[in-house]
Computed example of a mutant assay.
Amino acid sequence: MKYVLAPQEMEWHTLEKPEFPGVGFQFTDSVVDEDYTSAYSIQLSRMGPGGRSKLHRESHNHAFYIVAGTGTVRVEKETFDLKPGTLAKIPRGIPHAMDNTGSTDLEFLVIYDPPYVTGTNAVANLED
């Protein structure tokens, strides 16, 4: 197990799946996974300026912890501002969307409960 990880040491993936409801996303594999715990997982994510996700639902509880940048998150019909230090909790099945409203990357941790396994949580696009 590696105890300390720097972003430049992590493998970053660009989200290029046409069925995914967003643009401008990059993410790491889980930085806290089964070698540490099987209770939850965490990915480091970033969304470039102008990046956004469409309104969608997921099968996992998850939370976004904002590390850098600014944006908004829509949860059901309410929209909230995001800035470093903000935590947005998204229960499974709740419609949500995220936008980068700033001129720099929006960087955030995504904490999943139960742990996210790549390709297993269905994402359903919803009408805005």
Rank of each mutant, 00 (worst) to 15 (best):
T70V: 14
H96T: 14
I90F: 07
N100C: 11
E76Q: 13
T101W: 08
T79Q: 07
G85Q: 12
T120P: 00
I90T: 02
D105I: 09
P95E: 11
I90Q: 00
P84M: 06
T120M: 00
D81E: 15
G102K: 05
K77R: 14
T120D: 01
K89A: 15
L109C: 04
A88N: 10
K89M: 14
E78N: 05
F80K: 10
R74Y: 02
P114S: 02
L109W: 06
M98N: 03
F80C: 00
G119K: 04
N100E: 01
D113C: 05
A97Q: 05
T72L: 06
A88T: 15
K77S: 14
N121W: 04
V110P: 02
L106K: 08
D105L: 06
T79I: 04
D113S: 12
A122F: 12
V117M: 05
D99M: 07
V110E: 05
P95M: 12
G85Y: 02
E78I: 12
V110Q: 02
H96W: 03
D99Y: 10
F80V: 01
T70N: 12
V75S: 01
P91C: 07
L82D: 07
P84L: 05
I94S: 13
R74E: 15
D113K: 04
T104A: 11
F80Q: 06
L106G: 01
G102S: 08
R74A: 11
L87S: 12
L87M: 15
D113A: 08
G119M: 00
S103A: 15
P115V: 01
S103F: 07
G102P: 07
P84E: 06
G93K: 06
P95A: 13
G85N: 12
G119D: 00
D99C: 12
F108K: 02
L87I: 09
K83W: 13
T118R: 13
L109M: 11
G102V: 13
D105N: 09
A122I: 08
F108N: 02
K77D: 15
H96N: 06
I111T: 04
Y112E: 01
E76H: 14
H96L: 13
P91L: 03
T79L: 02
